[in-house]
């Protein structure tokens, strides 16, 4: 899109070239708009700070692989709950299960009204704290998201919250032995490198599962559920 063409034209062109379109775009609603323009199936691979559904599928798949169940788990989501699209999609996906959600973020990055209303409309059980130590002992999964500089409309707001939290071995040692740590990656400094070698760290395995998950999704989209 570097030559100044609009999204609609780009999508029409891809539609003529390909059997399926995968779109990642910096603006919210771009993928939905693409579905209206294209005749081919469109997969949303991230639209601004709104949604990232394939990441959420992968997150659920990882949790299911680890625990063989999702219902009944206690899941903490730590980080930028206001602008991170993976949080919206993950919460939407988790709303199909009976989970306990602990939302953890600096005050400035609390979830937006839209997400709160969604959770309420689905009758989800959730609470919010600004300190991961308050809830770490209760968690089966700690899902960490980075604070994304590129999503902040105001750079000053970003400066206020950068480095506001950090997952360290000390925090993890307070958790259950079966606790797992997930992260959609890339990581900046919100997870200490020393955590990588702990048995709880699962984020690289999680990233690896993205390959078969997306292969399965593409197959489903292109060929249906025929095996």
């Amino acid at each position: 899109m570097a030559k100044g063409e609009n999204l609609a034209d780009t999508i029409r062109m891809l539609d003529a070239y390909a059997n399926a379109i995968v779109i990642r775009h910096s603006l919210e609603g771009a993928a939905k708009f693409a579905t209206e323009v294209a005749e081919s199936p469109v997969i949303n691979a991230g639209d601004g700070s709104q949604n990232h559904p394939t990441q959420a599928m992968l997150d659920l798949y990882t949790i299911w692989r680890e625990f063989k169940v999702i219902d009944g788990l206690s899941i903490g989501i730590l980080g930028d709950l206001k602008y991170a699209r993976v949080v919206n999609s993950l919460v939407q996906a988790l709303s199909y299960y009976k989970v306990r959600l602990h939302l953890i973020s600096p005050e400035l990055l609390r979830p937006r009204q839209e997400l709160i209303e969604f959770m309420n409309s689905r009758g989800m059980k959730y609470d919010w704290t600004d300190d991961p130590y308050n809830v770490i002992g209760d968690l089966d999964v700690l899902y960490v998201v980075r604070i994304q500089r590129e999503r902040f409309p105001d750079p000053m707001e970003y400066e206020k919250v950068r480095g506001a939290y950090r997952v360290t071995p000390k925090l993890i040692e307070r958790g259950k032995p079966s606790l797992i740590i997930l992260h959609p990656l890339p990581r900046v400094d919100e997870v200490d490198f020393a955590v990588d070698n702990m048995p709880q760290a699962r984020y690289f395995r999680q990233a690896g599962l993205g390959v078969p998950l997306r292969m399965a999704l593409l197959k489903l989209v292109l060929a249906g559920d025929r095996s």
Partner: peptide, 9 residues
């Protein structure tokens, strides 16, 4: 940042 606010779409 909503796609509907793009002038040329």
């Amino acid at each position: 940042r909503c796609i509907t606010n793009q002038q040329r779409e």
